[in-house]
């Protein structure tokens, strides 16, 4: 179809780090098994970027993830919470303990298999950084394995499917922060920055978005019908070059971040104890508004 865009969104399951969900053993180690898995929060940004493209230009969005069979739930979450038309899970025992290099090789095989069996990809979206330690390498390494161009830290995106080009604004951090405007040919990888904001200025786009959101929520209710799982044979991957065997790095040790020796002796304050609270207020009172001619930031 002319003018439409086929996108893949790479998602990852991570431990749920929200307050209260994290579980530690007696030695202070994170108990990964007892900590629930959720979709990497930054992947939601990538999904929103893909949805923006889907709304503006039509086409198709597929979610793709690598992980154990249970990660189907992560893909279902992607479909339900933002948008995908269908999902692909790369799942196999041979893939266990992959580091980023082996993960990138596997994802590139997933993309190549997708191109061979489903259709030509225009854009691959991924979020920046996962919450569990892999810090933004997988996107660039997968793009490297495909030898496709990549634009990272994207905060705004426009796609021109007819010209087969995209225009993006990307955030550069250094000793000063900068915004670059970048143009690139399709197919291309787009790694979204957490600051990315989709925009739907046209009323028709807002309506389309609403309809697509309803459809994707309905689809997610029957997620298994929209999920395809590929193992290493489907992906034509040699077990020696994936999983632990194909990973240059190993984790040698994991230590709880040492609890720093208490440098301060905290006075415990019961908020129902008026005298105790008064001690706290003694610290706050000298800074109250009106005590000098400074301007308060929030009052500007």
């Amino acid at each position: 179809m002319e003018g439409t865009v086929r996108s893949i969104v790479l998602t990852k399951g991570v431990p749920d780090f929200s307050e209260g969900a994290v579980s530690f053993d007696e030695d202070g180690h994170l108990e990964r098994g007892k900590t629930p898995t959720v979709m990497n929060p930054n992947d939601e940004v990538a999904l929103r970027a893909a949805l923006q493209t889907r709304v503006r230009h039509g086409g198709h969005v597929s979610g793709m993830s690598m992980g154990p069979p249970g990660y189907g739930d992560v893909l279902r979450e992607a479909m339900e919470s933002v948008y995908t038309d269908d999902n692909y899970l790369l799942s196999d025992r041979e893939l266990a303990a992959s580091d980023t290099w082996a993960t990138a090789i596997t994802l590139s095989a997933g993309l190549e298999t997708y191109q061979a069996e489903v259709g030509d990809i225009d854009l691959v979206f991924a979020g920046f950084k996962t919450a569990d330690g892999e810090t933004g390498q997988t996107g660039p390494q997968t793009a490297w394995a495909m030898d496709w161009p990549i634009v990272t830290h994207v905060v705004a995106l426009e796609v021109d499917p007819d010209e087969r080009r995209l225009r993006a604004k990307r955030l550069v951090e250094g000793d000063v922060d900068e915004i670059e405007t970048v143009e690139a040919p399709l197919p291309c990888f787009v790694i979204t920055d957490p600051e990315f904001e989709p925009s739907y200025r046209q009323a028709s786009h807002r309506l389309t978005r609403k309809r697509l959101r309803e459809e994707t929520r309905e689809r997610a209710a029957d997620h298994d019908d929209h999920l395809t799982t590929w193992n290493h044979e489907d992906l034509n991957l040699d077990p020696d070059y994936i999983g632990l065997d194909g990973s240059p790095t190993i984790v040698s040790s994991v230590d709880p971040i040492p609890k720093a020796p208490s440098e301060r002796e905290a006075t415990m304050v019961d908020p129902t104890d008026a005298d105790a609270m008064d001690d706290v207020l003694e610290e706050l009172r000298p800074h109250a508004a009106g005590t000098s001619d400074h301007a308060t930031e929030a009052g500007d």
Binding site: T249, V251, V254, D255
Partner: peptide
């Protein structure tokens, strides 16, 4: 050494050669 898991733990990462494939 890197802070991992959103700052809950430090991981020490090593990049070691495999037999026949040196990293």
């Amino acid at each position: 050494k890197r802070p991992d898991f959103s700052g809950f733990e430090y991981s020490t990462i090593l990049c070691l050669d495999n037999p026949g494939r040196e990293f």
